[in-house]
Design a protein around this nucleic acid. Structure first.
Length: 282
DNA sequence: CTGGCTCCCTGAATGC
DNA sequence: TGCATTCAGGGAGCCA
């Protein structure tokens, strides 16, 4: 579920209101509860509960896959990891299984952090700089592919793990990386230092294309998680192993790269770099 | 710097 | 067919 477009969608819903929940801006916190201690990365539970009460929500923004909720005196930062979700509901609705941290507002609503796999984390801090210090650039904010190209050359890594490395580029996950590599016509195992400048440009465009389309579609909804997005209907390769490539009809293949399931078209994304590949006619 | 393991739980897939 | 077991899954910190 939560890669950059899904997190962006959640942030916009919290800031501007979503289809099933109002915006939380200016809401004042009555109290908080923590049911699974490890959810709270920092500070310790007692300090958090004491400090967060009474603060109001000033703004909600996204950085990489982090949800940054600016409160009166502190930042509440949420990372959903694999299976996390945030629900804003009136207090007439019951809490659910796997709700690990709940913010109760003065106005009769609450925000629940739900996460079956318990990988997600919440930080409560005075600043966010320390938390984000090592993050790579926002892919949608990259203007020129020249710098991107140089960075790819400097790192001699397999393309897919590199693109998913948050310290290289911040926000890509498994789904959007597979999709972007297919659009760019690049094999996930290709070494980043073997890219031509033209391929690097194509890759950056593909990344920005797939992310902005994902945001337009309110993200992708998979299985029972993250209702509301529709980008899953436009997947070219992700989750489509054995089905035909939308470009050439070849069956999509699935391999494991860096412990992650990886989907690609063996024809559109050739392993070896034959210099005159698909560049002929489009 | 890189690759592998680990944190957890769930539903689907597999095995007998 | 039915029950039990295994495995894969949106992520990333930590370790060697």
């Amino acid at each position: 579920m939560p890669e950059l477009p899904e997190v962006e969608t959640i942030c916009r819903a919290l800031r501007n209101g979503g289809r099933d929940a109002p915006a939380i801006l200016n809401w004042q916190i009555e109290k908080a509860e923590v049911f699974w201690p490890k959810t709270l990365a920092e500070p310790d539970k007692q300090e958090f509960l004491q400090q967060v009460a009474g603060q109001s929500v000033l703004n909600v923004q996204r950085r990489a896959k982090f949800i940054v909720i600016q409160l009166t005196d502190d930042f509440l930062v949420v990372h959903l990891r694999m299976s996390g979700d945030l629900r804003v509901e009136p207090n007439t609705k019951d809490l659910q299984k796997h709700d690990h941290l709940v913010i109760w507002f003065q106005n009769g609503f609450h925000m629940a952090f739900n996460d079956p796999r318990k990988f997600g984390r919440v930080w409560f801090r005075k600043d966010v700089e320390g938390l984000f210090a090592r993050l790579g650039p926002e892919p949608l904010e990259l203007q020129s592919s020249e710098n991107f190209f140089n960075c790819l050359l400097q790192r001699r890594r397999q393309l897919k793990p590199l693109l998913m490395d948050q310290n290289f580029l911040a926000g890509m996950g498994n789904i959007y990386t597979d999709e972007a590599l297919h659009i760019a016509g690049l094999h996930p195992l290709m070494n980043s230092s073997d890219l031509t400048q033209k391929e690097a440009q194509k890759l950056l465009y593909a990344i920005q294309d797939v992310l902005s389309t994902g945001i337009q579609r309110n993200g992708a909804s998979i299985d029972w998680f993250y209702r509301g997005g529709s980008f899953q209907n436009e997947f070219r390769v992700y989750g489509r192993s054995g089905q035909p490539c939308p470009i050439c009809g070849t069956f999509i293949e699935k391999i494991v790269v860096g412990q992650r399931g990886t989907h690609y078209c063996p024809v559109c994304q050739p392993t070896s770099r034959s210099s005159q590949t698909t560049e002929k006619k489009g």
